[in-house]
Amino acid sequence: MQHRRQLPWRETTHPYPIWLSEIMLQQTRVAQGLPYFLKFMEAFPTVADMANAPEEKVLHLWQGLGYYSRARNLHATAKEVTFNMNGKFPKSFSGLLKLKGVGDYTAAAIASIAYGEAVPVVDGNVYRVLSRVFGIETDISSSGAKKEFTALAASLLPPGQASNFNQAMMEFGALQCVPKNPDCTICIFNQTCVAYNTGRVNQLPVKLKKQKVTDRFFNYLIIKDANGRTLVNRRGDKGIWHGLYEFPLLETPAALSKEETVVLIQSFKNLGFTPKNISIINTEPVIHKLSHQKQHIWFWEVITDTELPEAVEKEHLKTIPLPIVLHNFATEYWP
């Protein structure tokens, strides 16, 4: 383990920081997740601190990390552990699986690292290492792949060394057996690695299933009332951004011309006022890519002489959770 990265959650066996880091690092690179981990640990030194915080604060700190369901599950689990489990995380793989947002991988990581339970961790890094070293051509997105790779990883676990083995496998995949152009000439397995010795490093692991990406077209209205304040709405209980705030939104099935969009905004009954002036802020759309959708976003400035009691000062936007694309816009628009 002398080559492992020095990471704060690796310096402890306490389940709270291990759990927090594993939730954060789901579909997130360590370099991106580390500042968030430190920020969360400063704001919530214990699981009880997180449980007692409003969800809005948790979402605000999470802003920019994406996949916001992770943050909502994080908060729900913190409350479950604090209020229903006397502040103690379950001490077994099976018990950890009962926590919201904790799947096989996360439960195995916590159980092996915090408690030394002999359960293998199988994530994208482990899939890659095992498929290459053993020459496994099973499609890792197929229904049987998880069972096959978990069984293989379990057979390799050295007695009493689950924590070190699992962390070593994840580190090896992250640092040496990387997805593209790994330096196999310095790899300790290059004498026995099937992929390297058969010229299939770039073909393994096999992943055939691709997620369909949907194009969506958003027009956000930056409404300025008679007092120079603006409107924001809190999203409801559906969608990837539920619980976050956003500007009033008009979504269209396709991109419209500037003239068509102005007419649409003028007829938007939910405004509750007659716009004095409408102007486009960005003529080229901001492109925001998610795993399952590609958003084409335009921002429109809508001026009214009406005083809107529900409008907020621009400084208020710094205190509430916004999707990162809206946060970035607001930061640039109101420097």
Rank of each mutant, 00 (worst) to 15 (best):
N84R: 13
N84Q: 14
G87A: 04
G87L: 00
G87W: 00
F89A: 00
K91Y: 07
L96K: 07
L97G: 09
K98V: 04
G101Q: 02
V102Y: 05
T106V: 12
A109E: 04
I110S: 09
S112W: 01
Y115I: 09
Y115M: 03
G116D: 13
A118S: 15
V121Y: 12
V122M: 14
G124M: 06
V126G: 02
S131C: 14
S131V: 08
V133S: 09
V133K: 02
I136L: 15
E137P: 04
E137H: 15
T138V: 13
D139R: 11
S142H: 05
S142V: 05
S142I: 05
S143W: 07
S143Y: 08
G144A: 01
K146T: 12
K147P: 01
K147L: 14
F149G: 02
F149I: 05
L152W: 12
L152G: 03
S155C: 08
P159T: 10
G160F: 11
N164C: 09
N164S: 15
N166R: 07
N166D: 03
Q167E: 15
E171L: 02
A174G: 12
L175S: 12
L175N: 11
C177I: 04
K180E: 13
N181C: 09
P182H: 01
P182V: 07
D183Q: 10
C184F: 10
T185F: 00
I186W: 07
F189V: 02
F189T: 11
T192S: 12
T192N: 12
T192K: 10
C193P: 02
V194P: 01
A195P: 03
Y196R: 14
N197Y: 11
N197M: 11
T198P: 06
R200N: 13
V201G: 02
V201R: 06
Q203N: 15
L204A: 08
V206K: 14
V206C: 12
K209V: 12
K209I: 12
K210A: 14
K210P: 01
T214K: 14
R216P: 07
